[in-house]
Computed example of a mutant assay.
Amino acid sequence: MTAIPPEDRAQDVLAPPAMAAIFLTLTVRPGGEDAVREALSGLAGLTRAIGFRVPEAQLSCVVGVGARLWDRMYDAPRPVRLHTFEPVVGAQHTAVSTPGDLLFHVRATRQDLCFELCYQVMRGLDGSVDAVDEVHGFRYWDERDLLGFVDGTESPTSRVAAAAAGFVGDEDPYYVGGSYVIVQKYLHDLAAWDKLSVEEQELAVGRRKLSDIELPDGVKPPNSHVAATTIVDPDGTERQILRHNMPFGNVAAGEFGTYFIGYAADPAVIEHMLQRMFIGEPPGNTDRILDFSTAVTGSLFFVPPADFLEDPDTVVAAASSRGLATANNDTMPSDGSLGIGSLRRSNGS
């Protein structure tokens, strides 16, 4: 199995930045597991059927499964780093944890195809799920967020770098080509943000607003967003994730936000970023952006390889025949990914 490049087993995580997207978070009702599993096995075919009518729209869908649903729905070891999202509580800011069994990340160049796919998904799951959150994202100018800055600049662009950052490899041989995804819905206080001068905004972000060029180290404050979200290993290697953030909003309701969605081979990278943002390193050196942006949701999911999603029993049987199930269980961590929690697998948390 590991001889196959991870990206060849993956869902469409590497799809290019979208013009439109829908992020749909669901919980599964007790007894709905079989219906959900069957629907997920046919999701790729459903996406192809809808996208075939307008191929230039590049419709794609990635689905993630939460820890509690995984244990209810699959007779297979839980991916080694899958757990429920732990809230990150700082002195001033909190990254909240909210319910989520399923995440559908639907992308296209047109919103109508995203809408149609989500509509058909919900029809197929009727009676088995409840909607927790639905966000319709859109491209804003030249890949900017509603704060006016380009978003996602540091997401790796080459296919090799993106695959290395985003896909599980030999460390979890059962699920090579899978990925972890953390999502957060941020609401912005644009009235307060717009009172800042452009120079003050640039110091908060760590980049020039017009050119998107990162500020020099001697100018960039340690509490800027760029500084807070840059993770460097002791050997000097910068850790990367795949970001597919999108703006969303409701003008009449005064709701303006950014939907953060980050894919990674190891969710601990994103969790470390959130520790730096919400608690600070050292404590108190929190991300300046959080004075204007509030996280109102937070969930962690595992994105199974495409072949597992379509036919989990065959993949499980093949892996078991090679003894991978035992290896997977032997490497299962008992603690949270940052080593600071007590995320117990036995109770689904």
Rank of each mutant, 00 (worst) to 15 (best):
I4D: 03
P5L: 00
P5V: 02
E7M: 01
R9F: 03
Q11W: 01
D12A: 15
V13K: 07
A15G: 08
P16G: 12
P17D: 12
A21T: 15
L26T: 07
A44T: 12
A49Y: 11
G51W: 02
E56S: 12
S60K: 06
S60V: 12
V62N: 01
V62Y: 01
G64R: 00
V65E: 00
A67C: 15
D71Q: 10
Y74Q: 10
P79L: 08
P87Q: 11
V88W: 01
V88T: 13
Q92N: 10
Q92Y: 08
Q92R: 15
T94M: 13
T94G: 10
V96N: 06
S97F: 07
L102V: 02
F104G: 04
V106A: 12
D112G: 08
C114T: 10
C114K: 09
F115K: 01
E116S: 14
E116D: 14
C118Y: 04
V121T: 11
R123N: 06
G124Q: 07
L125T: 02
G127S: 11
S128F: 13
V129I: 14
V129E: 05
D130S: 08
D130W: 00
A131V: 08
D133V: 03
H136Y: 10
W141K: 04
W141Q: 12
D142V: 11
E143R: 15
F149P: 10
F149Q: 13
E154H: 15
S155T: 15
A162W: 11
A163Y: 00
E171H: 07
E171V: 01
P173K: 03
Y174A: 03
Y175F: 10
V176A: 05
Y180C: 03
V181I: 05
I182Q: 14
K185S: 07
D189E: 05
W193E: 12
D194W: 03
K195E: 15
S197V: 13
A204V: 15
V205Y: 09
G206E: 01
R207G: 08
R208N: 12
K209L: 15
K209V: 03
K209C: 02
L210F: 02
S211E: 09
S211H: 04
E214Q: 11
E214R: 14
E214Y: 05
L215I: 09
P216F: 05
P221F: 01
N223Y: 02
S224P: 07
V226Y: 03
A227L: 01
A228S: 14
T229Q: 00
I231E: 10
D235G: 09
D235V: 04
I241H: 05
N245I: 05
M246F: 10
P247C: 07
G249M: 04
A252V: 13
G254S: 04
E255K: 14
E255G: 04
T258S: 00
A264C: 04
P267M: 04
I270Q: 09
E271N: 07
H272S: 14
M277W: 01
I279F: 07
E281L: 10
G284Q: 13
N285S: 10
T286S: 12
R288W: 06
I289T: 08
T294S: 05
A295S: 15
A295P: 00
A295C: 07
F302D: 01
V303L: 03
V303Y: 00
P305G: 08
P305C: 07
L309H: 05
E310C: 07
T314Y: 05
S321E: 15
R322A: 14
M332K: 15
P333G: 06
D335H: 10
L338W: 01
R345Y: 08
S346C: 00
N347A: 00
